[in-house]
């Protein structure tokens, strides 16, 4: 194993070091890396959008195949640019209204199904749960956890009677849930750092396999 001879690996390694230099404080090298990243990302986005979408899915059907059905969404899309003309800028609300109406309309049944109905179904007792004593126990614990956490989030009434200890139990479940998320977050951040150090040690310096 030896140090990289490919010039592009060196470019990648130096840019990696530019970003790592932020650990010593904000500095020109970091800023150059940061700004290059933004520019290159936008350039990449433009290229992919053109080759993957605008040309095959809009230019070809509209101008080469003469598919008139594409005129309406194109006009709606072009209305986004009305924002640059103060007198006509209100027209931007038309495509926005279309997009928001569509987004809201499709999301209601989808969210209802995936995140409410299916999740309620998952919280119901099944024969599979009843097959083992430990699964019954953990099922009961989960159910108590779900109910108590929901009670904790119910702020419309003063917590009195049973709702007070229930909400407190809800906090316990929430804290364990947040703890699990934190543990996983540590894992994620460390993994990303390892990935970059692997690049420097393997691809650039050739120290490791």
């Amino acid at each position: 194993m030896a140090i990289a001879t490919d010039l592009w690996i060196w470019v990648g390694a130096l840019l990696t070091l530019f970003i790592f230099s932020f650990l010593f404080g904000d500095n020109p090298l970091y800023k150059i890396g940061e700004h290059v990243y933004v520019g290159v990302s936008v350039g990449y986005f433009i290229s992919i959008t053109w080759h993957n979408f605008l040309y095959p899915d809009l230019i070809v059907p509209l101008f080469r195949q003469g598919n008139l059905l594409y005129i309406i969404p194109t006009i709606l899309g072009v209305l986004y640019f009305s924002i640059f003309f103060p007198k006509l800028s209100w027209l931007i609300r038309i495509p926005m209204g279309f997009v928001l109406g569509y987004g809201a309309g499709v999301s209601i049944p989808a969210v209802l199904q995936a995140n409410i109905i299916k999740q309620i179904q998952g919280s119901l007792l099944s024969t599979q749960v009843l097959s083992r004593w430990d699964s019954i126990l953990w099922y009961v614990v989960s159910l108590v956890g779900i109910v108590c956490t929901i009670i904790y989030f119910f702020f419309s009434r003063e917590r009195k009677g049973i709702s007070k200890p229930a909400a407190e139990a809800g906090i316990v479940f929430l804290m364990v849930g947040f703890g699990a998320s934190f543990g996983y977050t540590v894992m994620a951040r460390v993994s990303l750092l390892i990935g970059r150090l692997q690049f420097l040690l393997r691809d650039w310096l050739g120290i490791i396999k």
């Binding site: 499709v106 049944p109 969210v111 199904q113 299916k118 996983y184 977050t185 993994s191």
Partner: peptide, 22 residues
């Protein structure tokens, strides 16, 4: 999950960053 699995019933498996695993 909401648009492909719930609506069309496709089987979905996932690989995620640890941040969103929980």
């Amino acid at each position: 999950l909401p648009y492909a699995q719930a609506r069309f019933g496709v089987r979905v498996g996932t690989g995620v960053t640890a941040v969103s695993a929980a």
